[in-house]
């Protein structure tokens, strides 16, 4: 055991040293200004998320969930795609195991997204890291990666942007139940395109020249093939893992 621990510590130290060549130690902030910046930046995106929230509320209403139950689910789960799939699986009696397993599988991609925050979050305390991660959704993770890779060092950006998502997601879910079928298709206002637009903008932001091309091509092809073969969100995990493996092989 002790040798494993030593090895681990050496590895961690070597990364800290490598990182400190361009970072001052503990240079990542966590303050009210960061929360505010995240919240404000995320507002237009959160408005788009509200389009999905209304759609989710309508579906949940059709599945027989009450306003209170929908509010509880949106406030505690906070993961759009998985919630929509869950209420689609809803029946009487509730197929609890199927629902929870589907939710877990759809959300597995978050483990990779969370891991990608490590270069910055390793400087923050546990309660800040694990509190912020509760508020991580696709859209605000994308905005946060953009902010942090841009060199802002605002560790509270994920929390701030996540709070914006949370407020709009809970409110729009409740509104969706209330309005029922009035707006049952987010495509009416082009709101269904917000997620794609966010990710296109992020891809432009994350493009880092020729070295990006190989892992991205691997991710793209893997995701396209996987989505043909497997239902659900597995293509996200598959694409991410394949690109990571390809990069490790390429560096050898």
């Amino acid at each position: 055991m002790s040798t494993t621990d030593e090895q681990t510590e050496q590895d961690v130290e070597s990364i800290e040293t490598a990182a400190s060549t361009d970072d001052a130690p503990n240079a990542v902030t966590f303050d009210r200004a960061g929360i505010r910046a995240g919240f404000v930046t995320c507002l237009p995106v959160a408005l788009g998320v509200a389009g999905y929230g209304i759609a989710f509320g309508v579906l949940a209403d059709q599945a027989g969930l009450s306003v209170a139950e929908v509010a509880l689910m949106s406030a505690t789960v906070l993961a759009g795609a998985s919630q929509i799939i869950a209420v689609e699986l809803w029946a009487d009696p509730i197929p609890a195991a199927t629902v929870v397993l589907a939710v877990f599988a759809v959300n597995l991609r978050y483990s990779l997204m969370g891991a990608a925050l490590r270069p910055w979050f390793k400087h923050l305390s546990g309660i800040r890291v694990y509190g912020s991660l509760f508020f991580m959704a696709d859209e605000n993770w994308a905005l946060t990666m953009r902010d942090l890779t841009g060199g802002s060092r605002r560790g509270a950006f994920l929390l701030g942007s996540g709070l914006a998502i949370w407020v709009f997601w809970v409110a729009s879910s409740v509104a969706g139940v209330a309005v029922g079928g009035v707006i049952d298709d987010p495509a009416t206002f082009g709101l269904d395109f917000v997620l794609v637009a966010t990710f296109v903008a992020l891809a432009v932001e994350l493009w880092d020249g020729a070295s990006t091309a190989v892992p991205w091509a691997v991710a793209l092809v893997t995701a396209l093939v996987t989505t043909e073969v497997l239902a659900g969100q597995w293509h996200v995990i598959a694409g991410g893992v394949a690109a990571a493996v390809a990069e490790v092989v390429r560096r050898d």
Binding site: R109, L112, M113, A115, A116, D138, A142, M145, T149, V196, F199, V200, L202, A203, L206, W207, D208, T212, P215, W216, V218, A219, L220, T222, A223, L224, T227, H235, V236, A238, G239, G240, A242, A243, A244, E247
Partner: peptide, 13 residues
């Protein structure tokens, strides 16, 4: 490479 790869994997399909 994960952030960009995940973005592309979501975006492609």
């Amino acid at each position: 490479v994960l952030p960009g790869a995940i973005v592309v994997a979501v975006l492609g399909p």
